[in-house]
Write a protein that binds this DNA or RNA. Structure first.
Length: 354
DNA sequence: GAGACGTGGTA
DNA sequence: TTACCAAGTCT
């Protein structure tokens, strides 16, 4: 018997779908790729301004490949998951060199590029090249988990495999580009996480969760674990000319490769900060001025950030290097900074509101 | 397979 | 205030 899933979905998409997103204009593999990477774990409204600015600065894969990675990271500043930006830069060089600047229309070759996994490769094939490929992102997982009443958390391999199998089954042979956009649009606009608009859904007649009034139960939720608590001192070292010391973070780990403010071990008491600056950074400061600290929550832990302003009395040890730089605030804000650090530099008195 | 990796919206 | 989650991938 014929599966009406795709036909109903496409009919809905023609009337209600999103047809004018920025990456739908001047569509090519490069623009689709950048948009797909930006959209990983990130909502459309957040991505749009970043995409526009990124395209203005890096209009094609060659421009991206030859740009300094600092430039790429600064355009990613505030978007999060910075490994995406570092990988984007690496993959651009791969495409430029190994594929002569042309993206392959092949799932396996696309997945050989760092940062492109199974779903993103499929999205590029469908969106950029218009060929049949099956995606499975958060939207599709939610739609399919409900439609087929697939129990369990999609992070579990067995659940994930079932969802992939359903996704493959429903993917039609025609209109690949529209179908992938359609099922994502349905998940984002109708089959939402909370309060889904089932009365407006083209698939409600076949939806098992809807039939049982159990849309709330799908997809299954992730097992909860307590987040560990961490703490750190964040230093605002400001010299007499109003320059601040910036430090480049290690290439991997949280905020990898971004510029930030120097940190000190949380074990130091506030009265020990002065001495620690002298010993560890070679910078002589006067008494620290503590700004109200705040807690910043990451995916896997809570971080207590305690900012300390330290007026620099004497500085001869630290020159401008690849890792440390003295910059005025406006210059610092032009670097790729993590969002909380940017806020701290912009409005230090309000960071407690974070 | 489980943990790491950001940020902003939502309840 | 806090937990959860969103166009996932890498280690």
């Amino acid at each position: 018997m014929k599966d009406r899933f795709a036909d109903r979905l496409l009919a809905w998409y023609d009337q209600h779908g999103r047809h004018n997103l920025p990456w739908h204009q001047d569509r090519n593999a490069y623009r689709v790729w950048v948009s797909e990477i930006m959209l990983q774990q990130t909502q459309v409204a957040t991505v749009i301004p970043y995409f526009e600015a990124f395209m203005a600065r890096f209009p094609d894969v060659h421009a991206l490949a030859r740009a300094p990675v600092d430039d790429v990271l600064s355009h990613w500043s505030g978007l999060g998951y910075y490994a995406r930006a570092r990988n984007l830069h690496k993959a651009a060089a791969q495409v430029d060199e190994e594929f002569n600047g042309e993206f392959p229309a092949c799932q396996q070759q696309l997945e050989s590029l760092i940062g492109i996994g199974r779903s993103t490769a499929a999205a590029i094939i469908a969106q950029a090249f218009g060929e049949r490929a099956t995606i499975l992102d958060g939207n599709v997982k939610r739609v399919l988990a409900r439609y087929h009443a697939v129990p369990g958390w999609p992070g579990q391999t067995s659940v994930l495999n079932q969802l992939w199998a359903h996704a493959e089954t429903h993917t039609p042979n025609n209109r690949a580009r529209d179908y992938t956009q359609a099922i994502m649009d349905l998940g984002a606009m109708v089959c939402t996480r909370s309060k889904p608009k089932c009365e407006a859904c083209p698939l409600s007649a076949g939806c098992q969760a809807y039939a049982n009034s159990e849309t709330r139960l799908y997809p299954g939720s992730k097992p909860k674990k307590a987040k560990p608590e961490k703490a750190t001192w964040i230093l605002i070292l400001e010299d007499a000319e109003g320059r601040i010391l910036l430090e480049r973070r290690p290439p991997s780990g949280i905020w990898g490769g971004l510029w930030s403010l120097p940190e000190l071990d949380p074990g130091y008491g506030s009265e020990e900060l002065q001495e620690a600056c002298e010993r560890e950074l070679g910078i002589t400061c006067s008494d620290p001025d503590l700004i109200s600290g705040f807690r910043h929550t990451f995916s896997h832990y809570h971080l207590h950030i305690q900012p300390a302003r330290l007026p620099v009395v004497h500085n001869t040890q630290v020159a401008d290097t690849d890792r440390l730089r003295w910059l005025h605030r406006d210059q610092a804000l032009a670097l790729g900074l993590p969002a909380p650090i940017r806020t701290l530099l912009t409005e230090p008195e309000q960071t407690a509101l974070l």
